[in-house]
Design a binder for these strands. Structure first.
Length: 187
DNA sequence: CAGTGGATGCTCT
DNA sequence: GAGCATCCACTGT
């Protein structure tokens, strides 16, 4: 079980520590394999220009969800990090589908395991996360986070799909996972 | 495979 | 009115 104190640290510590943590929503989910960090000094962060109605929960206490709509169609799930008042969050970009696979297949309309929850929009569709889940505590249902039991091999790379601060290596992935939203860039 | 463009809605300038 | 922390279908090799 992951406690709130886990999130009350620098997002640059929390984000890699989330790799291998099992994320469940109503029992559906699996281990996190891809995360991106967004901190308060980050021009790519929604919170960079200050508090607005959309990003308000990023300025609140850690250990809560921040869910926003992307490109008018998709939802994206973040976990709020760092002490209250410091706006930072970790974007969950991919999990390995393990629990409730049938429900993910119904919601995603595909049987291809690599298309179920690889990508932030797909992940939210597979886990039925929407704007209704914005600002919910992560230590209460429907959410459940299970600590990893072994230290995974973690790789860092530039983040995906952003134009500002595109060179910061703040994307963390489970090295060698087949369930990343995109392959790691070649070294 | 790679590359392109459309869908779609909301936030902030 | 522009710009997205995306995904999918479609094109052409």
């Amino acid at each position: 079980m992951i406690r709130r104190a886990f999130f009350a640290r620098s997002v640059h510590e929390v984000a890699p520590d989330l790799i291998g943590v099992t994320l469940l929503v109503d029992g559906v989910g699996g281990p996190i394999v891809e995360v991106e960090a967004y901190d308060a000094t980050d021009p790519a962060s929604h919170a960079f220009r200050g508090r607005t109605p959309r990003n308000a929960v990023m300025f609140g206490p850690p250990g809560y969800t921040y869910v926003y709509r992307s490109y008018g169609i998709h939802w994206c799930l973040n976990l709020v990090c760092e002490p209250e008042g410091t706006a930072a969050a970790a974007l969950i970009r991919a999990i390995e589908p393990v629990y409730g696979i049938e429900r993910m297949q119904e919601r995603r309309r595909t049987d291809d395991p690599r298309l179920l929850a690889s990508g932030p929009g797909r992940l939210c569709q597979a886990l039925a996360v929407t704007g209704d889940d914005d600002g919910l505590p992560l230590d209460r249902p429907p959410f459940e986070l299970r600590a990893r039991t072994r230290q995974p091999a973690i790789a860092a790379a530039p983040r995906i799909g952003i134009t500002r601060a595109a060179d910061y290596p703040w994307r963390y992935v489970l090295a060698g996972s087949r369930f990343l939203s995109r392959a790691l860039p070649r070294a």
